[in-house]
């Protein structure tokens, strides 16, 4: 049983060898951590492979974050994965155009993604295809806009109450 801890670049190479499409490349980092870029419509397949493959065994999703990149007119999702059995860690990134921000949901792979994905929808307006309950989580259901977008303008009033002070 070859089961050893892998570095992010090894994981990227391993993914390239075993997955036909969707793995777009490995981005090394000068400071901080590197990441693997993936296509948004293949996220679920890659996630399932990452979880179930015996060499990778990413059994936990530590964090799922939405990001707005205003210069590129894009939204992005970053997945931080960790394997408690093998001890390695990797970051995946998927980018989508802001006018059609659809990413596959990984809620069925890691249950923890449920609330993280709802938060990314609430805060940035990223739609997760296949999520069982794509509702706002932190803001009220009838709130307007997605606060963490860089061009967000807060609504003047909510239920007749001024929101600015």
């Amino acid at each position: 049983m070859p089961t050893a801890m892998k570095q992010p670049e090894e994981i990227a190479a391993y993914l390239n060898d075993h997955i036909d499409e969707g793995v777009l490349g490995f981005v090394p980092a000068e400071v901080g951590q590197p990441w693997i870029s993936v296509a948004p419509d293949t996220v679920k397949k890659i996630a399932k492979f990452l979880r179930d493959d015996q060499e990778l065994r990413f059994n936990t999703l530590m964090c799922l974050s939405g990001v707005h990149y205003p210069a590129e007119q894009e939204l992005g999702v970053t997945y931080h994965l960790h394997s408690t059995t093998l001890g390695h860690t990797v970051a995946l990134k998927a980018r989508v155009p802001i006018d059609n921000p659809r990413v596959q949901s990984v809620e069925s792979i890691w249950k923890t993604a449920d609330w993280h994905e709802r938060e990314a929808w609430d805060m940035l307006g990223i739609v997760f295809d296949g999520h069982p309950n794509m509702a706002r989580i932190l803001c009220p259901d009838d709130w307007i806009g997605h606060p963490l977008r860089k061009d967000y303008v807060q609504q003047e009033t909510y239920m007749g109450v001024t929101t600015r002070f």
Partner: peptide, 23 residues
Amino acid sequence: MKEGEIYVRTETPRGELGYYIIS
């Protein structure tokens, strides 16, 4: 700061606290 990003986690009384910072 240089351009880069990091996810750092620490053990708080309630569990894993992660900060994902992009610079």
